[in-house]
């Protein structure tokens, strides 16, 4: 998070586009596909915004209407997606130019790999490897389930299960510790916000559970 918060992320070398000369079309191919998907999504969203803006009204007797700003933004996004697409095409067409884009700036310390061929620091956006697809699915899935159940089962019960799931998923702590942390994190937060800050977190929608104070 650090760099993204305050802007000016240091330039990082972009991963090589497409399969390498010897390797199979694995992660490199998917990394080449990712910008294309991004550009397509942006272009589709932009097209939708442009299309909808006409229906909102572009101009009224007092000046620009509700659709004016969306139209400008939609067109701008379309042009930007196109510009990005052209830039990517040029970059992949001239492999020699690729390092120039990610070349070390004045602020960067050039990285020398300890073992030839293996970078000494993780590549951009890969995290440490534990933030893989399974991790993303587990976090996102658990948040969706939590969102669906929070008003029905109440904050305390849902959050208890949520915490227990995350603590035991990676076997980070023993069962007893996980149960204690989950109880403190769910019931403790409920009480802290309710009694301490006057912010009432949701109680269970099922009367039986609500009567139990959950």
């Amino acid at each position: 998070m650090h760099e993204q918060n305050q802007a000016a992320p240091p330039d990082r070398p972009s991963p090589p586009a497409g399969p390498g000369p010897t390797g199979p079309p694995g992660p490199a191919a998917s990394s080449a596909l990712a910008p294309l998907i991004g550009q397509a999504v942006l272009a589709l969203v932009a097209a939708y915004v442009v299309f909808t803006s006409f229906g909102l009204g572009l101009w009224s007797h007092i000046g620009p209407g509700p659709g004016f700003f969306p139209l400008v933004l939609g067109v701008a996004m379309l042009l930007l997606a196109l510009s990005w697409f052209v830039q990517e095409r040029r970059r992949t067409a001239t492999p020699a130019a690729a390092p120039a884009q990610g070349a070390a700036t004045a602020t960067e310390v050039p990285e020398v790999p300890v073992i030839p061929g293996i970078p000494s620091t993780p590549a951009a956006g890969t995290g440490d490897g534990s933030g893989g697809r399974g991790h993303v699915l587990a976090v996102v899935g658990s948040l969706i389930v939590l969102g669906l159940l929070i008003d029905l089962l109440g904050f305390q019960l849902t959050m208890f299960a949520f915490l227990l799931f995350h603590l035991k998923r990676q076997n980070a702590v023993r069962w007893i510790t996980a149960v204690i942390i989950s109880a403190v994190g769910s019931v403790g937060t409920f009480v802290l916000f309710g009694a301490g800050l006057g912010v009432q977190l949701p109680a269970a929608g099922i009367p039986f559970l609500a009567n139990l104070g959950l």
Binding site: L143, M159, F162, L163, H166, A172, V173, G185
Partner: peptide
């Protein structure tokens, strides 16, 4: 604090 515990507790704050 074990990172998994920290992450889980941060998630609680995010939800709240």
């Amino acid at each position: 604090i074990p990172p998994a515990v920290l992450t889980a507790l941060i998630l609680v704050f995010m939800v709240v």
